[in-house]
Each structure stands twice: as structure tokens, then as C-alpha cells.
Design a binder for these strands. Structure first.
Lengths: 247, 247
DNA sequence: CGCCCCCTTGAGCCGGGTCAATTTGGGTGG
DNA sequence: CCACCCAAATTGACCCGGCTCAAGGGGGCG
């Protein structure tokens, strides 16, 4: 099983029967057009959604109407586990497809069953911890750091996360507006920043697209340390853990 | 059991026997002096640490030597669950006591046992989700937002989290340096910001202390929406969930 | 009693924001 | 195939919040 979701689950330490059970649960699918909402802000959800293909983002709208992007969702990512776990919390967060997306739908009732399997429950926990790590990392990059550093960091993170699920293309499906909303800079300045990166031959000159040419330099600019996404290493401990649980 | 940790666990939905079992596990304690390290950056840990009393913060040191504070830990908070879950990840994060702290120590081996109880495992998951929510909230406040908004948001969050574990004092044990490192502003500007808040009678004039006088105005300035910390509401779903699991 | 850490204050600079046009393409109906 | 429309990308001018550098105050603790 080499689908992004399969890779993702394996990287979280889900194996054999548990993997099958989970993959059974994501048979029901929905297709979402680019720029459409996967979940509208304020919706009450009764299912958990998982991105199978395409790229989405979760965002919040501020009172002044501006959008802040909280995170991107690549294939294999859960969109709204937080709603399932913390119910009412997180109303006000919407999810939008950036490209056409295929999304799997899991009823809460079904989730309950999945969670009764310890291996899956702990995998979900690990996924949440990883999300914490992402935010933590983003915070230290976004809090301080120049514009170029922030943008570079964002791109590095997304590339790394996509690679983790087998997507090695150097293009990222973001508009400059998306990037601006994600890193908290103005569109104008994001534009200038990207031009700088293009001039340094870090991004390609291809217009209307974000294509990373020089990954190494990008990482240097971003001060990006990919260790925090390196699942194999992260699981060094859990390989043991999981086996023990299977005894 | 009204200790902060007890309150915390209850608010995560831990009840009865599970509660007792957990509280048994935190009998071993360590005292840490103010400004000492609870965990040194780069240390390899073999235990999980839980703050029982006092306030700590986790931080990362940048190459230029500056400190960024990633989060504060109040009584009832785990300090380094992430290390337990994601092993090697998160080397480079240190934890420092801001005030004298009492810290409980749980061996990894012991954690494994605790996690074999589904109610505790899911409580930990919920705690991680809550942490995600904290970071998410912080990100949208820190990303954009003026200095005064960011500082106010930080203070609101900390007050709310302390209240959740029964600490209602309006004073927060942070130096202005701590605040600067946490919100990503210069100390100088944090100072000016705090003076502004004092002039508006939001903070008291008491020097060398952060004492919130006008909570309501502070929240308005911060655009702080405490729902994301409102555990009772968050658990509306889990109250059912937990009982079902106990069947 | 003196040192050191934190808090203050002042001056000047600059990264990034805002406002406002303009260009570029891709998609679309005719 | 062509004229048109709209969202995204660009560019230029100007402004300001927050940073840096630098120099004092205190107050607590050894």
C-alpha cells in the first residue's frame, strides 16, 4: 500500500491488521473542487475528513474579513480531528481546497470504533503530537524571523511533509495570497520576497507557480531543521512500543 | 482532590480509579529553584515531568543565543510529553523554572503502564489536542496583530489556563524579558507596551510585577476568545464518550 | 555595601504595511 | 478564433510600528 495515506499511517506506526481496518474505514469519498470549502466555518460536523489527494488549508476569518491560514493539509492528513476530540471547540475554522481534492469521510461513530484499537488510538495521539511540533516550529519561525526566512520556512515545511507521503514534486500549489495569509505578511511583501528568492535561483522563474529549485539554499535561508518531521527517527522508540502492545 | 493536577485531569475527563492510578504515579517529586533548568536543552530524558506547583517555560535557543519561549507550564501541565511520544524529536528544547517549582517525575516505564488504561490514553490525547489549539490560537495572534494585542493575548491565555487549574490570582510570574521572548518582541518594546496597559489601568502600577486589574478590557484588546480553553464545554461530547468506554 | 539583573527612557533607522495603479494570463461566451 | 473578465501578480510611493543602540535608575541578594 503506497498511497499517501498508507505511507502516513505506516509512518505513524500503524501496521498489518490495524492498517487494513483503517483503510476500510475510508472507503467513502467526496470530491471537492478547487477553491471550494471542504468544511464551512461554523458548520457542525458529524464526520472526520481525511485528504486523500490534493491540497487544502484550514483558515480562520478575522473580524476584518482577512483570512489567516492556520495550516495546510496534504494527502494523508486529517482535516478536523480536533473537532472530533474537542467538540465545540474550533467552530470558526474553515477548510478550503486549494486544488481539486479527494476527501475521505469517516463518521464519528466509525471513529469511535477505530479508536477502540489501541494501535490506532496511539497513532492518532502521535499524529497530534506531530502537529504540536509543527506549530511549535512555525511559531519560532513566525514569531521572530525576517520575511524571507518565514516564507522559506513555510515552503521547506510543506515540501518535507509532502515528501513524507511520497510526493516529491518541487512545485507547491499555493498562490502568493495563500502564502501571505499563512505567514502573516502582506501580499505585496510576499511578492517581493518571492522575487528575491527567484533572483537567487532558489525558486524557478516559472510565473504563477511556486517551484523550488534549490532546496538546500532554501533550507539554509529558513534555518530549517527537518528533524522534527523525520518520522523514521521519531519512531525509533515506538517500533518497540508498538510490538510490545501487540504481545 | 482539588490540587491543580487533579483539576486538570478531571477536566480532561479522567475519573475515579483512573484518577487514583495516575495520582499514585506522581508521588516522586523534585524541587527546582527559580531560574534553574527543569530539563537542560539536549538532555536525554527517561522520565516525563509534570508541574505540580510553580511556573515554568519551555524555550529554544537560537544560534544567535537569543531565547524564544515556546510555551508556559502551569501546575497540572506536562512539560515534555512530546519527548516521550516522539523520542528524539525536540532535542534542543529546554525547560526552565520561572518560579520555584515542584515537579513530579514519571519514568517512561511507568508511563507505558498508565497508557494501557484507555481512559488515560485518551485523556492524554485530548491534552495534546488542547495544546494544538493553544498553538493555533497563539499563531493567529502572533502572526498578525500589534504588539499590544500580542502581549494582551498572552496574558489572557495564561490567566485562563491558570484559572482552569484553580489559580485565580491576578498576578503572573513573568518578567518583561520572559514576555518579550514569548511573543517575539524586543524587551524595550514590551516595556513600552506594558506601560501603555498600565496607563489604561489594565495592569496595576505595581512595579516589577504583572498584575492584571481589568480583565475585561485586556480580553477586548487581545480579541481573546476563551472558548478554546473552556474544558467543560469541550468535554460535552466526551462525557458521553467516556461513559461508553466504561461500559 | 556593592553588584547584577531587570526595568526605563530617548533617538534614529528600517523592514514591512498600506494604498493605488497596472500587467498578466487563463478561462469563457460569442 | 477573438474580445472580454477576473483573479493573481507586480510595481511604485510613502508611512509607521517596532527594532537597535546607548545610557541611566532601582531593588534585592550575597
Amino acid at each position: 500500500m503506497d498511497s499517501p495515506l498508507g505511507l502516513r499511517l505506516k509512518s505513524l506506526g500503524v501496521q498489518a491488521e490495524d492498517l487494513d481496518v483503517f483503510l476500510q474505514a475510508v472507503q467513502r469519498r467526496v470530491f471537492v473542487a478547487a477553491h471550494a470549502n471542504v468544511i464551512r466555518e461554523g458548520d457542525v460536523a458529524k464526520q472526520v475528513k481525511v485528504v486523500l489527494a490534493g491540497t487544502a488549508c484550514s483558515y480562520r476569518r478575522k473580524e476584518d474579513g482577512s483570512r489567516s491560514i492556520l495550516s495546510f493539509h496534504h494527502p494523508g492528513d486529517f482535516c478536523d480531528l480536533h473537532r472530533y476530540v474537542l467538540s465545540d471547540l474550533e467552530r470558526g475554522i474553515g477548510i478550503e481546497a486549494l486544488t481539486p481534492c479527494t476527501v475521505a469521510v469517516i463518521d464519528y461513530q466509525n471513529m469511535d470504533q477505530l479508536l477502540s484499537r489501541p494501535a490506532l488510538a496511539s497513532a492518532f495521539w502521535r499524529a497530534s503530537m506531530l502537529e504540536v511540533a509543527l506549530y511549535r516550529e512555525r511559531l519560532s519561525s513566525a514569531g521572530r524571523g525576517s520575511a524571507i526566512e518565514r516564507v522559506a520556512h513555510l515552503l521547506c515545511e510543506q515540501l518535507a511533509r509532502r515528501e513524507a507521503v511520497g510526493i516529491h514534486a518541487p512545485q507547491l500549489p499555493f498562490s502568493q495570497i495563500d502564502i501571505a495569509d499563512a505567514v502573516g505578511l502582506s501580499v505585496v511583501h510576499v511578492n517581493r520576497t518571492i522575487q528575491t528568492l527567484r533572483m537567487q535561483n532558489v525558486l524557478s522563474e516559472v510565473k504563477r507557480a511556486i517551484e523550488v529549485v534549490d532546496r538546500k539554499t532554501l533550507a539554509r535561508i529558513a534555518k530549517f531543521d527537518s528533524r522534527y518531521l523525520d518520522m523514521p527517527k521519531l519512531l525509533s522508540k515506538w517500533a518497540v512500543q508498538v510490538e510490545r502492545a501487540g504481545d
